[in-house]
Amino acid sequence: MKTFAKLFALALLVGVLRPAAADINVFACEPEWGALTHELAGDKADVYTATNPFQDPHHIQARPSLISKLRRADLMVCTGAQLEIGWMPQLLLQSGNDKIQKGRPGHFEAASHVKLLEVPDTVNRALGDIHPDGNPHIQTDPRNIGEVAKALTARLEEVDPANASYYAARGADFMKRWDAAIARWQQEAKPLHGVRVVVHHDGWAYLFNWLGIQKAGALEAKPGVPPSAGHLAELKQELAGNPAKMVVHAAYQDDRADRWLSAQTGIPAVKLAFTVGGTPGAGDLFGLYQDTIDRMLKALKK
């Protein structure tokens, strides 16, 4: 009976503590960083992704469930550049977790490892929801993923030194496949060079910079301010004089304004994954760029 009680207590304890099979817990803010951590750390890391591809990463609430996850994290992988300013600071404060606080090895911000575009000269809220550090949507250029992958590999080695050689080997393997994929995508995407494209939100600066695509306008007159009828009419007028080939939006965005513009101007409205999982083809990081390029090439032929 006593043995049974002991066993029962042990079972309870194990049930409560549930030691994870993986060596470290990772809290990823967006799906692209969850996917990248998974590529680099394999089954050594238990990765929790805080947002799904159909959520707007600007507007997430500091929910209790997220505090719980962050409390147990050994490493936090987020975009930074103030993308998560509306929720991460509160989660960090409430988590009671010292490992992932700013300045600690467990605090990883991807945007600090790449060159940011569209850094504003002046910052004023009258200009809409702008990001003073620059455009934070860095994941639309695979070369940024490569830079972040290198930095993240080093960070994994620092946070979990016992598995350092494992991360180093996985990181090197990933970079080899990644560089080859980038070369292939650049070849495939050549027809997109110089093409004029309208964007819904200013989330594509890095993709356009990479492939030499020209931004022909944005449905949001100011970042984060929903498309207004007046602005759309103006945009339609502009496009009549200098046409674009397509209008693109992220999977998480409401596409009503895109469809309106498409119907008015005859250019196709294209939904792009924006992050891993946003479209059926974007199942992993490799799929994300392949699917993005495929969809734009298909729209170009229309």
């Binding site: 409560v16 469930s65 719980s68 147990r72 409430q94």
Partner: peptide, 12 residues
């Protein structure tokens, strides 16, 4: 003093 428990369901 606040303590967040290491549980899946947020417990503080």
């Amino acid at each position: 003093v606040r303590w967040v428990a290491p549980t899946d369901t947020f417990t503080e």
